[in-house]
Amino acid sequence: MAPIPTPPAEPQDNPNTYVGLGAPEAERLARERGWSTVRSLPPGAIITMEYREGRLNFEVKDGTVARAWKG
């Protein structure tokens, strides 16, 4: 039987620290802190709800991060 793959490590990072930052700065900082995937979305975007280790989501309004969450 094949081994079960190990999901990527998730940084020990608080998503709330990104709220209020400009989107480009927040994305750069998140990648520097080790997030493998950073997703910026407009308010009210329809998205899938599956949880993905190592992914950080930003809701961006007027170029600024209004909300941030893992998965």
Score class of each variant (00 low, 15 high):
residue 34 G to P: 06
residue 66 A to G: 09
residue 69 W to A: 11
residue 31 R to E: 08
residue 15 P to L: 03
residue 60 V to Q: 12
residue 32 E to P: 03
residue 50 E to F: 06
residue 7 P to T: 02
residue 11 P to L: 02
residue 32 E to Q: 12
residue 9 A to L: 00
residue 21 L to A: 05
residue 56 L to T: 12
residue 41 L to A: 10
residue 58 F to M: 08
residue 27 E to W: 02
residue 37 T to R: 13
residue 26 A to T: 07
residue 18 Y to K: 03
residue 14 N to M: 01
residue 49 M to D: 07
residue 27 E to Q: 12
residue 58 F to T: 04
residue 30 A to E: 05
residue 42 P to H: 06
residue 40 S to G: 10
residue 3 P to C: 02
residue 5 P to S: 00
residue 55 R to K: 13
residue 33 R to N: 06
residue 49 M to R: 09
residue 40 S to Q: 15
residue 2 A to S: 04
residue 58 F to P: 02
residue 3 P to I: 02
residue 57 N to E: 14
residue 49 M to Q: 11
residue 28 R to A: 14
residue 45 A to H: 10
residue 38 V to D: 07
residue 2 A to Q: 03
residue 7 P to S: 01
residue 50 E to C: 02
residue 67 R to W: 06
residue 16 N to Y: 02
residue 50 E to P: 01
residue 31 R to G: 09
residue 32 E to N: 11
residue 1 M to Y: 04
residue 28 R to N: 13
residue 44 G to C: 04
residue 43 P to E: 07
residue 14 N to Q: 03
residue 30 A to H: 08
residue 66 A to R: 14
residue 61 K to G: 05
residue 42 P to I: 11
residue 65 V to D: 06
residue 21 L to S: 03
residue 5 P to C: 00
residue 16 N to T: 06
residue 43 P to Q: 04
residue 26 A to G: 08
residue 10 E to Y: 00
residue 29 L to Q: 10
residue 52 R to Y: 14
residue 56 L to I: 15
residue 13 D to Q: 00
residue 68 A to C: 14
residue 15 P to T: 04
residue 2 A to E: 03
residue 53 E to P: 06
residue 71 G to R: 15
residue 22 G to H: 13
residue 8 P to L: 03
residue 8 P to I: 01
residue 69 W to E: 14
residue 44 G to I: 07
residue 17 T to P: 00
residue 66 A to Y: 10
residue 2 A to Y: 00
residue 7 P to I: 00
residue 59 E to S: 10
residue 26 A to R: 06
residue 39 R to Y: 13
residue 59 E to T: 15
residue 52 R to G: 01
residue 58 F to C: 05
residue 27 E to N: 04
residue 58 F to W: 08
residue 23 A to L: 04
residue 26 A to L: 08
residue 35 W to P: 06
residue 19 V to W: 05
residue 39 R to L: 15
residue 28 R to W: 05
residue 71 G to W: 14
residue 71 G to M: 14
residue 49 M to I: 02
residue 42 P to R: 12
residue 61 K to M: 12
residue 48 T to V: 05
residue 62 D to H: 11
residue 14 N to K: 01
residue 25 E to G: 03
residue 4 I to Q: 07
residue 57 N to M: 15
residue 17 T to V: 02
residue 71 G to C: 14
residue 24 P to H: 10
